[in-house]
Design a protein around this nucleic acid. Structure first.
Lengths: 166, 166
DNA sequence: ATTTATGCAAATCCTTTGCAAATCT
DNA sequence: AGATTTGCAAAGGATTTGCATAAAT
């Protein structure tokens, strides 16, 4: 039985697992235990994560040895191909976030605590398309990361190292 | 003797080498042969480059064995600290570009040929500051990369794989 | 004379790969 | 059965590090 699955502000018809099965079938790939487990866990929490985070989550919630590291990497790649996840590179390591059923957005990256804060701006989309047009560039996406220090970190630093602020 | 050094649209008082010497002195670091060679070569061309590109350039123009790989990496880090270079991560590898005496800008990244095209938009700056304010985030910088396919690559593909477009 | 920087080789980190065994369809 | 996947161990690529030697102050 298929039920409605809502996440964030967008309504979608299929659960991530169903969406994955659809994708796998269309590619002649197989619906395995580990692929199912991975999608479930990936969509059980909404935070940004990397391969290690996911591996740890699997180890803790599902138990160790259920899914191997190579399989995690291989499956993450498939989830990106399937449009379920979005991948971005942050200082050498690959970080993933939900794509399926989740609105487009950009990020504020705190360089003190490494936190990622999401925001969305229609203007960015407009600029993106305008610039693409000007350069006869066929735009497929963009990535805007604003770096700085989040309010939490600014606060905690204020007492300790006032000269750090501007 | 100090002479004016102009690059792009911004006038600066010191050459990159002088700027580096200033930085090194302020940090109690030493002005070595290899550091000087590296800055000179880095500012001899304006393209984006990575550690390997620079190593190749050094090998070809200065001769092999003048500067070792670790020294290139160590010095690139210093040049970023010194404000001479800007670093960005593009799919796992670190890419550098001139920062000193060069205006702020963003990039279009062609996923076919890996070319980086620069553009600048005042609106991006505005959005960046607005968003930062909204989130009580102390903005120190941003990075906007628009991905897609450049006009050259679109053209060459058009005949071969028309369905690839749109 | 000191102390920092370099080069070498080896180590690290993240990610990918070859291949035999296990698992789907 | 027949094909794809998995897990293991090992390989890979980029970048970093320990340490003895070379170079700068």
């Amino acid at each position: 039985m298929s039920q409605d699955y809502s996440l964030g502000t967008v309504e979608v018809a299929l659960t991530p697992v169903q969406r994955l099965e659809e994708y796998l079938q269309s590619k002649g790939k197989r619906v395995t235990q580990q692929r199912r487990i991975i999608v479930e866990q990936v969509f059980a929490r909404h935070e940004h994560f990397d391969a290690d985070d996911l591996l740890a989550q699997l180890r803790d919630l599902i138990g160790p040895k259920k899914v191997s590291r190579p399989t995690v990497y291989r499956t993450l790649t498939e989830l990106v191909e399937a449009g379920l996840l979005r991948k971005m590179t942050l200082g050498g390591r690959s970080v993933y976030e939900h794509d399926y059923g989740y609105p487009q957005h950009d990020h504020l990256h705190c360089t003190k605590c490494d936190k990622l804060i999401e925001f969305s701006s229609d203007e960015v989309k407009k600029i993106r398309d305008d610039v693409g047009r000007e350069h006869q560039f066929r735009v497929t996406g963009h990535r805007l990361i604003i770096t700085g220090v989040c309010s939490d970190c600014s606060r905690s630093r204020r007492t300790a190292r006032p000269h750090d602020l501007i």
